[in-house]
Amino acid sequence: MNYRTLGKTGYKISEVSYGSWAIGGTWGDVDDKTSLLALETAIDQGINFFDTADVYGDGRSEKLLSKLSKSVKDKIYIATKAGRRLNPHNTEGYNKANLEAFIDRSLKNLDMDCIDLLQLHCPPTEVFYNEEVFSALDDFKKAGKIAHYGVSVEKVSEAIKSLDYDNVASIQIIYNMFRHKPHDELFQLTKEKNVGMICRVPLASGLLTGKMSSNTAFAKDDHRFFNRNGESFDKGETFSGVDYKLGLQAVEALKQIKPHNMTMAQFALKWILMNQDISCVIPGGKTKEQVQDNASSSDLPTLSKEIMSEVVSIYDQYIRESVHPLW
């Protein structure tokens, strides 16, 4: 496992880290015993950074990470998120009182005195223009409830706006073979500001594993069933906003250029890791086998310039027109 620095936090984190949405819920069946085994496997693979949120299983994944942190000797970093518990999820709800209540709840779930990294959880765009929100985060940092804070965003424009606040330590955004805009417009800016880049949805909700087909069925409690058009939250979080059938066509094209020594998932992760401006990628892993497959992408050979260029060509042919302008 290779390690990179998470921006101004100074944390040395595994370039392949762990996203815990899937072990919380809305990804079909999952049980805590299997999830804990996946988390323990992540530790064995050298992963030391775990991303979660208070709404993943209503705190379920935070509590699982609390169990993990108690069972390991070395320091692991846990980043959680706040804001999506608001109902309605609106700009007004992002106030100091609500945020403090969310932070206190996460501290209890995680059984921590201080959260390593607290991220606003894809708030409405207007929140990024509200200085009082970021002033409140500064206060929570001074009070010792959070060590650092960052933002999780839907749009590149929101990420760019967040850079106006000096203490924003990290940005989490969707970046993968089906989402190229962050590379084009954001990464150079975050590099200049020493802001860490956490890349989520790296496998496009599993599309980029190459294991799905037109006959794949998803459980009714799986967001890949109920959120394809953004019925419950931003549709970009499901298959990266790509039309499912179109995505399958693009995956078939990607399979034709995939190196023989990689799985499709490893190919997709390695493509992201080729960019040195990112800090880490956070694929989920419901099983130990998935975690092992993901983690091993760190040590695989680099991709050739020709393959990197061909990925862009496939993006241009299948994806760019319908996705690039939206986020």
Rank of each mutant, 00 (worst) to 15 (best):
M1D: 09
T5N: 10
L6G: 05
G7R: 12
T9R: 08
E15S: 14
G19F: 01
G28E: 05
D31H: 12
T34A: 14
T34V: 13
L37F: 12
A42D: 00
F49H: 02
D51S: 00
A53C: 02
G57D: 00
G59N: 05
E62S: 05
K63F: 07
L64D: 00
S71D: 12
A82W: 06
E92W: 08
N95R: 03
K96A: 14
A97P: 06
L99I: 15
E100G: 11
E100H: 12
R105A: 15
L107T: 09
L110F: 11
D111V: 11
C114Y: 12
I115K: 03
L118I: 10
Q119V: 02
C122P: 04
Y129K: 12
Y129R: 11
E131W: 06
L137I: 05
D138L: 08
D138Y: 07
D139W: 08
F140R: 06
K142G: 12
I146S: 02
I146N: 01
H148V: 09
S152P: 03
K155P: 03
S157E: 15
I160E: 14
Q172W: 00
M177Y: 05
F178Q: 01
P182E: 08
E185I: 11
L186V: 07
L189Y: 12
M197T: 13
I198K: 03
C199D: 07
V201E: 03
A204Q: 00
A204K: 00
L208A: 03
L208N: 01
A217G: 06
A219Q: 15
K220T: 15
D221F: 12
D221V: 10
D222C: 07
D222K: 02
F226P: 08
F226I: 09
N227I: 04
N229Y: 12
F233Q: 04
D234W: 07
G241M: 11
G241R: 11
Y244R: 02
L246A: 10
G247M: 10
L248W: 07
Q249K: 12
Q249L: 09
Q249G: 01
E252M: 09
Q256K: 15
I257K: 05
I257G: 04
M262S: 00
T263V: 07
A265K: 00
A268H: 00
L273F: 05
Q276G: 12
G285D: 04
K288N: 09
E289A: 13
Q292K: 15
Q292C: 13
D293P: 09
S297I: 00
T302Y: 13
L303H: 00
S304V: 10
S309F: 08
D316T: 14
V323Y: 11
H324L: 11
L326I: 15
L326V: 14
